[in-house]
Design a protein around this nucleic acid. Structure first.
Lengths: 197, 197
DNA sequence: CGAGATACATACTGGTCGGTATGTTCCTGT
DNA sequence: ACAGGAACATACCGACCAGTATGTATCTCG
């Protein structure tokens, strides 16, 4: 097997195991079994379980964030509300029942680890700040182009939007019901429309 | 020590340990040390770690929910928006920095355990449904009394409110910053006002 | 062609975990 | 007074865990 392939296989297996069980309860043995490699390989590429977790955040999870939210919002169409609604709908469509039961990988890790591990907290914090910053900039841009109401505080609104998104995912995860996600998502869509001029 | 006292001490110690570490990573030994009793006492009152966790949810966490949200909303003042804002402000005031770092106990347990343990899921689900139902009824009552806009769908709105609340707590927990909670809470307060006639 | 480095595999270790078996004290009902 | 159960305490168990030490095959470079 090619070296970087093994590393990637390990990262993917780790991502799924962590997504299912959480970081602390994720079993290295289970990750190894799923990846089809042995402990020697793992500790060849990662110094510890924690470093593996950091790498999952920095490489796998941040990729998801980028493709789902950051890149679509970076296109300067000038209508951030439509862009945000598009992201939301697309994200909702591609989530199956299992994904909903497992919840948002970023939120899961942030909730579990931020109070007990500074390294995780710094990394999730960077990602959230990027997310917020991207939405905030898009809203600001929309204001300059007259698409978004001037009274809207971009930073505050971005925070509220991300909070509601994570909240919707949480409620749907606990209810284990996609209908809850859709109903809650409707609330977000209405709120987004209220930002329009 | 009185029998029911020991049980209560165990429940409190378990609640705090679970709040800090999550259920799966909560150490029975740590709980025992904090409670000042031994393993014999614990297994005299609870059949397993899991049953202890269930009891924490049903007795400790549900008490918090009741006193903070359910009972204040049950008073039929006829103005649910003011009631909700009052609950939110009161809840925000009594949270110190440590509470914010640890997050909402109900949400923590729901997020961690609902995908991997049906018993936890059922119990958190009951509590969320109670919460949603109480808010929904209050909104409906407010509509009949002309305090809340008729177009508001009580159930959908209750879901959106709870989602945003949990989302705000999540964002503040990850940021480890009460300012984030307050800023996010402002967004919720604005939204609540938008429900008024 | 050899030497070191890379890329793993296997076997093992100390520690922690939830859970149990057994012992002891005290209290209560008869 | 004494029998039985409630309310613990102590000691121990097997399972699993992250991490390590060591071995080995392949590949690269001089």
């Amino acid at each position: 097997m090619r070296p970087d392939t093994t590393r990637q296989v390990l990262l993917n297996a780790a991502f799924h195991e962590i997504h299912r069980k959480g970081f602390q309860s994720a079993s290295l043995t289970a990750i190894l079994d799923n990846a089809g490699v042995t402990k020697g390989a793992l500790y060849h590429y990662f110094g510890s379980k924690r470093e593996l977790g950091y790498a999952v955040l920095e490489e796998v999870v941040s990729d998801h964030l980028r493709t789902l939210w950051l890149e679509p919002l970076a296109e300067a169409t000038g209508d951030p509300v439509s862009q945000l609604k598009g992201c939301l709908i697309k994200a909702g469509e591609q989530l199956n029942e299992k994904d909903i039961r497992l919840g948002c990988p970023l939120n899961n890790l942030a909730q579990e680890m931020s109070p007990i591990d500074q390294g995780f907290r710094e990394r999730t914090d960077v990602m959230y700040k990027l997310w917020l910053q991207t939405i905030s900039s898009a809203l600001q841009n929309g204001q300059q182009l007259g698409k978004v109401r001037k009274e809207v505080d971009p930073g505050e609104t971005a925070l509220f939007i991300v909070a509601t998104l994570e909240g919707c995912m949480s409620m749907a995860k606990n209810a284990q019901d996609k209908a809850v996600l859709l109903q809650c998502g409707k609330g977000v869509l209405n709120y987004l429309d209220s930002l329009r001029t």
